[in-house]
């Protein structure tokens, strides 16, 4: 029988939110078509590092395992992406895994993406339909528009676009590209449109759309192919118009 092939992982680990990060190397048995997560599962089964020492299993986050939930995002060989969709055969070895640097580390590869949900709150990226009585069905959406909006709705809040953005970091308060595009999605919805100005005003709040400096990394890295830079330019126009309305407008009925 041929010698057992192995895959080498170098993982940046961190035991707790406050402790210092360190690297640990693992050799795991190779299987055909394995992805990064199956490698991490091997480590969990047999948490022994390259020196042969028993260690704590590596922690990571996952859910859907089909690149739709965004939970498993990490930096793989220098690029932020989903570990469930990262095939070992297509990666250079040793494979380096790091947590995304934009977010606070919870443990090992698990980060806290709370700031992205705060950003969605800032731009009110939802459609308020709850009330004391049944509002009935909303207006219909043209099929063509629905198909277009579907592309924007694919965002899984994975954080890859924030990780790639030079203006999202600990020195700046910029909320990042994802939420800017979500504001556009909900403003395009026939019911969501009714609260369009509230979302635009959210975009104009601190850390909002003015934080964009057009590096356009986001649109290059988004795993869902969301046209983030088109959304940002469209929201730039919309917020400018809203700003003029706020200042010069005759009343607040917008």
């Amino acid at each position: 029988m041929a010698e057992q092939q192995t895959v080498t992982f170098i993982i940046t680990r961190q035991d707790s939110p406050e402790s210092a990060p360190y690297d640990e190397t693992f050799h795991v048995p190779y299987r055909k078509n394995m992805n990064v997560i199956s490698g991490l599962m091997e480590i969990r089964q047999n948490p022994v590092n390259a020196n042969g020492d028993k260690t704590a299993p590596v922690y990571w986050d996952m859910n859907c395992l089909e690149e739709v939930c965004g939970a498993c995002s990490m930096v793989i060989n220098g690029t932020a992406r989903q570990s469930c969709a990262a095939l070992v055969d297509k990666l250079e070895q040793p494979i380096r895994l790091e947590p995304m640097s934009t977010f606070p580390v919870v443990r090992d590869l698990i980060v806290d993406r709370e700031r992205m949900f705060d950003a969605l709150k800032q731009v009110k990226a939802w459609i308020p339909i709850d009330g004391t009585h049944d509002l009935g069905p909303g207006p219909r959406m043209p099929e063509k528009k629905r198909q277009w909006a579907y592309e924007l709705s694919k965002c899984m809040t994975c954080g890859v676009c924030l990780e790639a953005c030079p203006n999202v970091n600990d020195k700046s308060n910029f909320i990042g590209p994802a939420a800017l595009s979500q504001a556009r999605l909900f403003n395009a919805h026939p019911t969501g449109e009714m609260n369009a100005s509230e979302r635009l005003n959210g975009l104009m709040d601190e850390g909002g759309i003015d934080g964009c400096g057009n590096s356009q990394n986001c649109v290059q890295v988004c795993p869902k192919g969301i046209p983030l830079t088109t959304s940002i330019a469209a929201m730039n126009r919309a917020t400018n118009i809203q700003a003029f309305k706020n200042f010069f407008g005759s009343d607040h009925a917008h």
């Binding site: 057009n214 046209p227 830079t229 088109t230 330019a233 469209a234 730039n236 126009r237 919309a238 400018n240």
Partner: peptide, 9 residues
């Protein structure tokens, strides 16, 4: 881009 003139790629 900032003023929303050029939007499409």
């Amino acid at each position: 881009v900032t003023w929303g003139f050029t939007q499409s790629p």
